[in-house]
């Protein structure tokens, strides 16, 4: 087990390093980083000053060392557009994305879990087939289009919900459902397969013979045992959601991290883009690591493969 954890730790550290190298290289490959990092209307003298300030006159490995050292200190540079440290801008927007992803997760579980459980209990019934189609649709529909269609139906035609922006709980419904649907497929399929797995055991037969109610068998005996992969998958999905809000937030003008990345790109505010990508990737890699270790802890077969 320790060996496995060590192996995964090294792997994750390498991934982290690779992401920093890629971001570092990207900024340099795309031309003069000083021009990229300077405000769009900077004079040549200012750009030269930027070049010295960024240490671009030094050898490349020293530049990279400084880059890593800055990140380690939590110094992601200054955003031009907001005229604040990038990390501060990020921190301001992050709670909004958390709120959106949390609400989306709620929708995902609210619909995904019951559909998955019922599909497993009534395998090959019309309900199972409906669940499959529903999940397939979630995977096949582009997120932005789901958002736009909801907008047309509930905001334009019915007028029940506001089209975009953030405010009351009404503003939250459409973006949360849009974001959640894409992830519902995974949760539904996983719930269905792990429930089928759990229902196949002898203790389920035993419980039935003992005369446990149908609800008791399904919920208390099978579902509890099917829950572990669902929880891990849920945690993983939550982080995917945090990273996947770009489109949803753009459609609904939701002031979160995803929208921030897009705004920063179009304002050519590269320090901020860099900050968002690095933090997003760190989250992503860290949670992947956590989930893998948790899985290995639960299922010993993984450790030895």
């Amino acid at each position: 087990m320790q060996r496995y954890i060590l192996k995964r730790l090294v792997q994750s550290a390498l991934s982290l390093l690779a992401v920093t190298v890629i971001v570092f290289m990207l900024v340099r490959l795309s031309g003069d980083p000083a021009v990229l990092m300077a405000p769009p209307d900077a004079a040549p003298a200012e750009i030269q000053e930027m070049r010295v300030k960024m240490g671009l006159t030094k050898p490349i490995y020293i530049q990279y060392g400084n880059f890593i050292a800055d990140i380690a200190r939590g110094n992601f540079g200054q955003s031009f557009k907001w005229d604040k440290p990038c990390l501060d801008v990020w921190m301001e927007r992050f709670p909004n994305t958390m709120l959106l992803a949390g609400a989306a997760m709620f929708f995902t579980l609210l619909i995904g879990l019951p559909v998955g459980i019922l599909s497993a209990v009534k395998v090959d019934s019309w309900f199972d087939r409906f669940g499959k189609i529903f999940a397939l649709m979630g995977q096949s529909l582009p997120v932005f289009w789901v958002g736009l269609m909801l907008m047309i139906i509930f905001a334009v035609f019915l007028g029940w919900l506001p089209t975009s922006g953030m405010g009351s709980w009404k503003h939250l419904l459409m973006p949360a459902f849009t974001l959640g649907w894409a992830f519902m497929a995974a949760i539904t399929r996983l719930t269905r397969s792990s429930m089928l797995d759990a229902l196949d055991h002898d203790y389920i037969k035993m419980a039935r013979i003992k005369g446990v109610s149908k609800y008791g068998v399904v919920m208390k005996h099978a579902f509890k045992n099917a829950l572990i992969p669902i929880i891990t998958m849920g945690a993983l999905n939550f982080v995917f959601m945090l990273n996947g809000t770009v489109i949803t937030e753009t459609v609904f003008n939701w002031p979160g991290i995803g929208r921030l990345v897009v705004e920063a790109i179009f304002a050519r505010d590269f320090p901020l883009v860099q900050c968002c990508v690095l933090i997003g990737a760190f989250f992503f890699i860290f949670v992947n690591l956590f989930v893998d270790i948790l899985y290995a802890y639960i299922d010993p077969r993984i450790r030895y493969s």
Binding site: L14, V19, I22, N243, V246, V261, I265, V277, A281, F284
Partner: peptide, 23 residues
């Protein structure tokens, strides 16, 4: 396989957006 791990552990859409934006 380590290189694969690295590529697969990156947040797909965000990295794609940044790559396209820079290129």
């Amino acid at each position: 396989m380590r290189i694969c791990d690295i590529f697969m552990s990156m947040p797909y859409l965000i990295v794609a957006i940044v790559l396209v934006a820079v290129l």
